[in-house]
Every structure is written in structure tokens, then in C-alpha cells.
């Protein structure tokens, strides 16, 4: 495989997968919590939270990237704080690319999980509570297993979105080979130089294959879960 792709191309693919996996894994707990809150709780600011979560979906990605730069950049308030106290730096690092990807993919993840939670009959959760399960146990033993297909679907969607994220990433962490040059950034970079079409085409193929594989995987999981729940 390494002789099929140049080291630079290979590096971009590996970085993209790493960034996307981290983006999905790190945002999943928050995604489930926010989806649960939006689906089941009524509280002041419900609409505001919903709007905030969906904002990256409708804002120009450049705007999101710029806002990230202002907030999490070296001079940004949050960025400075995290750097000084925890040694976590986002600006111009792969971690920043993961943050940008996570934020851009968050609405898709939350939507999928929220739909799954709304499809769970609260009567089942009530039944579990009368059988002695506290709220946490109800969630772990009833709600969570029932929304697992939705969570997996949300994760796959978010992964695919993170793999393709371009605008916010390049604005926030630039396009540094080996550091922040993800698959889309690499394709863009190859298209900027004469003779780069070949490399770009190979990366495009890989992007398509990864996206298709993700979709098939999510379909297969959903069907397997449905069979398990519906069947005898």
C-alpha cells in the first residue's frame, strides 16, 4: 500500500482517520448527554441549546473556524487557559483539527441519537423504575441498549463528516503536512500545484471508499440489531 501512495499522501490519510476517530470518541459522551437532554428534559434554554448545537450545520465553516481560532487559539481565552493549566494546545496541532471536526460533526451525531431516544417508549423506562432501577440504571439497562443502533448511526455519520471536514479545519489549524493536513486539505493542496492531479485523484478514491465502507457498516449494524430485538 505504501508504494501505491506516496509517504505524504499516506500521512494525510492516516492523520484524517486519527483526527476523525478522536473527534467522534471524544464528543460521544457529550453527544449522548445533549441528545438525552434535548429529547427528554424540559428546561429553560432548551431552544437555545438546540440552536447552539445546530449552529455549525448552518454557519459557513469558515466562520466556525474563525470563531474557534478566536476562542481556542494561542491568544484565545479558553486556549490560553487550557495551555497554561493542562498543557493542551489546539492551535495548529492535530488536536485542533480533531476539535474542529468534532464541532462540525456534533449536530449530525446529536440528531441521530436524539431520534433514537425519542423512539424509546418512556413506558418501558417507567416499568424499569417500578422494578427497582434508579434513573442511572434505567438508562444503562433499558434506554442505552435500545438506542444503541441510533448511537452507532450517529457515530458513523459523525465520522464521515469529520473525514470530510475542510473549511473550519483549514481556517483554525491551517494546512501543515504531518500536523494538520487532513485528507481534504491534502486534496486541496495537491490541486494547487501543477501535476498534483494524480495524487489528488488517488486521495479522492480513498475518501470515497472510506465513506462507502462507513455507510455499509452502519447499515449492517442497524440490521443486526433490529434482528436481535425483533426476532425470537
Amino acid at each position: 500500500m505504501t508504494d501505491w501512495l506516496t509517504p505524504a499522501e499516506w500521512q494525510a490519510v492516516r492523520l484524517s482517520v486519527k483526527v476523525s476517530l478522536w473527534a467522534v470518541a471524544a464528543s460521544l459522551p457529550l453527544g449522548v448527554l445533549v441528545a438525552y437532554a434535548l429529547a427528554r428534559w424540559r428546561f429553560p434554554g432548551h431552544g437555545l441549546l438546540n440552536g447552539l448545537v445546530h449552529l455549525p450545520l448552518v454557519l459557513p465553516p469558515v466562520v466556525t473556524g474563525y470563531l474557534l481560532l478566536l476562542t481556542f487559539g494561542r491568544r484565545g481565552t479558553v486556549g490560553q487557559f487550557l495551555d497554561q493549566w493542562f498543557g493542551i494546545t489546539f492551535a495548529f496541532r492535530w488536536t485542533g483539527a480533531a476539535l474542529a471536526a468534532a464541532i462540525m460533526a456534533f449536530p449530525l451525531m446529536v440528531r441521530a441519537i436524539r431520534l433514537a431516544i425519542e423512539a424509546v417508549d418512556p413506558k418501558l423506562e417507567q416499568a424499569a423504575s417500578t422494578l427497582g432501577a434508579s434513573r442511572v440504571w434505567v438508562f444503562l439497562t433499558v434506554t442505552l441498549p435500545l438506542i444503541l443502533p441510533g448511537i452507532l448511526a450517529g457515530m458513523v455519520l459523525a465520522f464521515a463528516k469529520a473525514m470530510g471536514e475542510f473549511g473550519a479545519t483549514i481556517t483554525f489549524v491551517s494546512n501543515i503536512p504531518g500536523q494538520t493536513q487532513t485528507l481534504p486539505s491534502a486534496i486541496y493542496a495537491f490541486l494547487q500545484v501543477p501535476g498534483g492531479e494524480g495524487a489528488a485523484a488517488r486521495l479522492v478514491m480513498i475518501a470515497i471508499v472510506i465513506a462507502m465502507a462507513a455507510l455499509f457498516l452502519s447499515e449492517w449494524i442497524a440490521r443486526a440489531v433490529a434482528r436481535r430485538i425483533g426476532g425470537g
Binding site: L124, Q126, A128, T130, L131, L146, R228, I229
Partner: peptide, 13 residues
């Protein structure tokens, strides 16, 4: 308390 509902409300999974 054991509660038996009108619909059985068994856990499908």
C-alpha cells in the same frame, strides 16, 4: 412494588 401494566411492557432487547 410490582407493577403489571395493561400492556406487558417487557424489555424487547
Amino acid at each position: 412494588l410490582g407493577y403489571v401494566f395493561q400492556e406487558a411492557r417487557l424489555f424487547p432487547h
